[in-house]
């Protein structure tokens, strides 16, 4: 029963990883930018929610309404002002710019908020659970997280497949110069995609914070690696694949946790590396598939 429980918890944890991975997948699939600061964007989202709670007394759910769109706007302008220029300079530049951001954010957060955990309280939601059988419980929050992750993936899929901006995003991923010849400003399309990625990252960050009961400046480094591992395990470019990847990673971590509380991170990383080695063709495909 312990194993079954761990499996179940792992699957649900996978929902969180998939949510974290989605933004990374969008940014890479459409802009070919690997955002090394993705985890830090999640952290910022969580900090905004935590600060909203502690200094304004706003509940997490209400603050999400502000935090998610706000980070979307931030993403839009980070793309337009920094990354767009970097994209014209070659392959290394965007990577180095996002790495710069990944260094700035946690250190600024430590200076501003110390290394202490900033609490993100959800009332009793974090502890409430549903009993399935003796010794088998599912938490309401993980369940909710999984539901939101599935909804986000489906929503992104619909956006890319059915809407005008989604079509433009896929076209920009194929050939941004030709898109320009057709009267579309590719910079706005890219910026919208990055805005979407940031908004989803912020949302995922808040959910991660709720699960952990708070957020620290070091969480970003953990989360960017989880998100990345989920993307790769699931197979680059497939949005539903990130969910599968997230679940594999989640299950690996929770099963390892049954053996020893020190093992989950190491085993998660090793499973990722094993997938990397065993997959016959390596990782080459990279387009967003709808």
């Amino acid at each position: 029963m312990v194993i079954v429980n761990a499996l179940l918890q792992g699957v649900l944890l996978g929902g969180l990883f998939a949510m974290a991975a989605l933004g990374l997948s969008i940014a890479f699939g459409i802009l070919r930018v690997v955002n090394l600061a993705h985890g830090e964007i999640m952290t910022i989202g969580a900090y905004l929610a935590a600060v909203g709670l502690s200094s304004l007394g706003v509940s997490v759910w209400v603050s999400l309404l502000a935090v998610v769109p706000l980070m979307g706007v931030v993403g839009y302008w980070v793309q337009r002002l920094l990354l767009q220029r970097a994209l014209t300079l070659g392959e290394l530049a965007p990577l180095l710019v996002t790495f710069g951001i990944a260094i700035i954010i946690p250190n600024a957060l430590i200076e501003l908020f110390t290394t202490n955990k900033q609490a993100i309280s959800t009332g009793d939601l974090a502890v409430r659970s549903i009993k399935l059988a003796d010794g088998l419980y599912v938490g309401v929050l993980p369940l909710l997280t999984m539901a939101v992750a599935i909804a986000l993936i489906a929503g992104t899929q619909l956006l890319l497949a059915r809407t005008r901006i989604g079509r433009h995003m896929r076209a920009a991923a194929d050939d941004s110069e030709t898109l320009r010849l057709l009267g579309v400003d590719h910079r706005k399309v890219y910026a919208a995609a990055m805005g979407l990625a940031f908004a989803i990252a912020a949302l995922a960050g808040v959910f991660f914070g709720m699960r952990q009961g708070g957020v620290t400046p070091f969480d970003g480094q953990l989360m960017v690696l989880f998100a990345f591992e989920a993307v790769i395990i699931g197979g680059l470019g497939s949005l539903w694949g990130t969910l599968a990847g997230g679940i594999v990673l989640g299950v690996a971590q929770t099963l390892a946790g049954v053996v020893s509380p020190e093992l989950p991170l190491l085993v998660g990383n090793l499973v990722f590396l094993a997938v990397l080695v065993l997959r016959p063709t390596g990782i080459v495909r990279s387009k967003v598939v709808v």
């Binding site: 890479f28 070919r32 930018v33 690997v34 090394l36 392959e91 965007p94 990577l95 790495f99 960017v224 690696l225 990345f228 591992e229 790769i232 680059l236 991170l265 990383n269 990722f272 590396l273 990397l276 080695v277 997959r279 390596g282 990782i283 080459v284």
Partner: peptide, 16 residues
Amino acid sequence: RLRGGYFAIGTWVIAE
């Protein structure tokens, strides 16, 4: 097995 940006982040995982 990884290229470009994913190589970068892959080396990070290895370091961890």
